[in-house]
């Protein structure tokens, strides 16, 4: 699986988590960019529509949350093909359901998963594989 030069957008508002996530992704060979709000994420996508994947938190800076971001992405002709991995600590049943219905790859509750496990899945999907539930 050629991961070199695969680009990932990380949308996360907590600084310590941004640092560790980007560090881990970089160690595995991904190129990453981190933004903290939906506004910034949309701006980034407009300039870089060809990214390979998105790591998305639910609670973000600014007014909009992750759900609204996914709505925007999935309604866009080009962006809708980008796989989205939602990694959040707020896990209300309706939210999880809505995210999955909108077509995100998987919903992870942060405190339940090791970084390694989440990245294993990202590697599979970006290598054009399929995740089995």
């Amino acid at each position: 699986m050629e991961l070199k030069d695969k680009k990932l957008l990380v949308v996360e508002d907590e600084q310590p988590l941004i640092d560790i996530i980007c560090k881990k992704l970089a160690l595995l060979g991904f190129k990453t960019l981190c933004v903290g709000s939906v506004k910034d994420a949309i701006k980034f996508l407009k300039e870089n529509p060809t990214i390979d994947g998105i790591w998305l938190d639910h609670c973000l800076l600014g007014k909009e949350n992750g759900l609204e971001f996914v709505h925007a992405v999935k309604n866009h002709e080009v962006w809708k093909k980008i796989p989205i991995f939602v990694v959040s600590n707020t896990a209300s049943p309706d939210k999880v359901k809505t995210y999955l219905e909108l077509g995100v790859e998987k919903y992870y509750t942060k405190a339940d998963y090791r970084l390694d496990d989440i990245l294993k899945d990202i590697k599979i999907v970006l290598g054009k594989g399929e995740l089995n539930e």
Partner: peptide, 20 residues
């Protein structure tokens, strides 16, 4: 809900940093 979210975030940070 809010309290648990606020608590779980730093706990996650510790979890992932120790993992690294």
């Amino acid at each position: 809900s809010l309290a648990s979210h606020q608590l779980l975030t730093p706990l996650t940070a510790i979890k992932w940093y120790v993992e690294m």
